[in-house]
């Protein structure tokens, strides 16, 4: 059960009434515009009341909202995208979509974690949990980007790396470790954006970046709230409490110096204006790339080192 979706149900009736009145006002001589305005004001007020300030657990649910824009939505908004497939060893992991692209006219290498939209698509994409093959695709294309001098743009949205038998057999730890190592080395700028769930090491594997951006209601956490609650209190039902303890919101992470920039979302969440949200994310990525464009590579790598070197210093 998604607590945001539950709350939205209460708004459906009001939305319906506004739509009805609109329809009537079109084919009736009576002027209903006052009533419509009043209802719309009320609707906006309720939206602000419900969504104006979200708890960490509500934000987790917002990040997992079934209508939230996902990786493929961002890719669809690029000028051009040519997908590149596979890890050249074993298979093409559909939990990561990657390839050449143009973003606001810039040539880039783009990589997105993809949860999938309908159920069949979600299953195909393992609900966005990448296997070692996905991280090896990331590693391969990071190296290719370095080879060609293409900046790298990543979109992070995963509950975590796949914890299955085959993933362990194919050395999931090594795959993530190698993706991280390659991102540490690559001599081109990297801009990462957390667009939904940033689930632990499986998310960070696309997040060792020169600039880290986060959508307001996305989350980024060392462990899932359910997992943390199970470890701490032996019951995943306390996930809301764990979410508050973990400090996983965009505000927390900006305060910790882990995230450089937070992009505001429309009231009620990114899905209420998907195209607008996607557009503001792409604008921010574009601006970040422009900002990194004139940094000499040795300095870029020194700054990348220093950026993560100072996190959590005691």
């Amino acid at each position: 059960m998604n607590v945001i979706v539950e709350r939205e149900k209460g708004l459906l009736e009001l939305e319906g009434r506004i739509a009805d009145l609109r329809k009537h006002s079109a084919d009736q001589p009576v002027d209903l515009s006052n009533e419509i305005t009043a209802l719309e004001d009320k609707y906006a007020q309720i939206l602000r009341e419900i969504f104006g300030s979200l708890t960490p657990w509500q934000r987790v649910n917002m990040a997992r909202h079934p209508k939230r824009p996902i990786g493929s939505d961002y890719l669809a908004a690029l000028d051009v995208f040519d997908e590149l497939h596979g890890d050249r060893h074993f298979r093409d992991d559909l939990a990561v979509i990657a390839g050449f692209a143009k973003l606001r006219g810039r040539r880039v290498m783009v990589m997105a974690q993809e949860k999938g939209r309908d159920f069949k698509d979600k299953v195909r994409r393992n609900f966005g949990s990448a296997s070692p093959e996905g991280y090896r695709k990331v590693k391969r294309l990071t190296q290719l980007a370095g080879h060609l001098g293409l900046p790298i743009v990543t979109f992070i949205d995963t509950s975590g790396a796949d914890p299955g038998i085959s993933s362990e057999e194919h050395a999931q730890a090594e795959a993530i470790a190698s993706a991280l190592a390659t991102m540490a080395d690559v001599p081109t700028p990297i801009v990462a954006t957390v667009i939904g769930e940033g689930g632990s090491g499986g998310a960070l594997a696309l997040g060792l970046a020169d600039r880290v951006i986060m959508l307001e209601h996305s989350v980024y956490s060392v462990a899932s709230p359910e997992g943390a609650a199970a470890i701490l209190w032996g019951e995943s039902a306390k996930a809301d409490e764990a979410a508050a303890r973990l400090r996983l919101t965009s505000d927390d992470l900006r305060d910790f110096g882990i995230v450089d920039e937070v992009i505001p979302e429309p009231i009620g969440g990114a899905h209420r204006d998907a195209q607008g949200t996607i557009s503001s994310v792409l604008d921010a990525v574009d601006a970040a790339l422009e900002g990194l464009r004139h940094t000499p590579i040795p300095l870029l790598l020194d700054r990348r080192y220093a950026k993560f070197r100072r996190i959590g210093n005691v």
């Binding site: 060792l208 470890i231 910790f256």
Partner: peptide
Amino acid sequence: RMEEGMLALMQMAKTTL
């Protein structure tokens, strides 16, 4: 280490570099 949250996770990046 969960008790240090994302600051702990980021040590993966620090040590990698």
